[in-house]
Simulated scan of single mutants.
Amino acid sequence: MTVVAGLLVFASTAAIGQMIQQNVPQLEGPAQSMATGEAKPLPKWVTDDQRRMRAYPDQPPIIPHSIEGYELSVNANRCLSCHKREFTQDSGAPMISVTHYMTRDGQMLADVSPRRYFCTACHVPQADTRNLVVNQFKDMSELGFKPAGSE
């Protein structure tokens, strides 16, 4: 009797599963074509050495120059040859933020923190392309707010 009841439950569960499976739409959509098409040309990088306004608060600054051929590995970081604290006076490059010399716990280090060593994890070159979406960001100064003490 127990075996018959078990078989009945199994059969009804399988039948319900098949009905549900037929009513659920495919999540991955139609099969994609495997044909190869012509690739779009790569966009040109903005390399005018002009600092850009940030698009949102706390945005990492973009890289306004070419970094093609820069070595960025465990053994070398070409970015630091200009942007490290001790080299900025000769290079004229902006110094990396003091936060790059801190540990996660806020302790200051004598050298760049290992977690901030790979610059391109946050900082990227700017490509000369159209926006994918309309940017409606307005800076506080555009909204009528003035810096404290300016009145």
Results as ranks from 00 to 15, higher is better:
67 I>Q: 07
45 W>D: 11
35 A>D: 14
79 C>E: 00
114 P>H: 06
66 S>F: 14
134 V>T: 11
24 V>I: 13
111 D>R: 09
114 P>D: 01
97 S>G: 08
87 F>I: 08
25 P>D: 00
112 V>F: 02
99 T>G: 13
103 T>L: 08
123 H>L: 03
48 D>G: 07
30 P>W: 05
106 G>T: 07
37 G>P: 06
83 H>L: 06
128 D>G: 04
132 L>H: 08
65 H>I: 15
42 L>H: 03
45 W>T: 10
83 H>G: 02
28 E>T: 13
86 E>W: 03
60 P>V: 09
60 P>A: 15
125 P>S: 08
63 I>V: 15
95 M>A: 15
86 E>S: 11
87 F>Y: 09
65 H>S: 14
54 R>Q: 12
34 M>E: 10
62 I>M: 13
114 P>L: 02
97 S>Y: 07
101 Y>W: 11
82 C>D: 04
70 Y>A: 01
113 S>K: 02
55 A>V: 09
101 Y>D: 10
116 R>Q: 05
18 Q>D: 08
106 G>Y: 03
125 P>E: 05
56 Y>M: 09
116 R>A: 12
82 C>Y: 00
41 P>V: 07
67 I>L: 14
78 R>M: 13
15 A>S: 15
26 Q>Y: 03
17 G>T: 06
34 M>N: 10
32 Q>P: 02
31 A>Y: 07
56 Y>S: 10
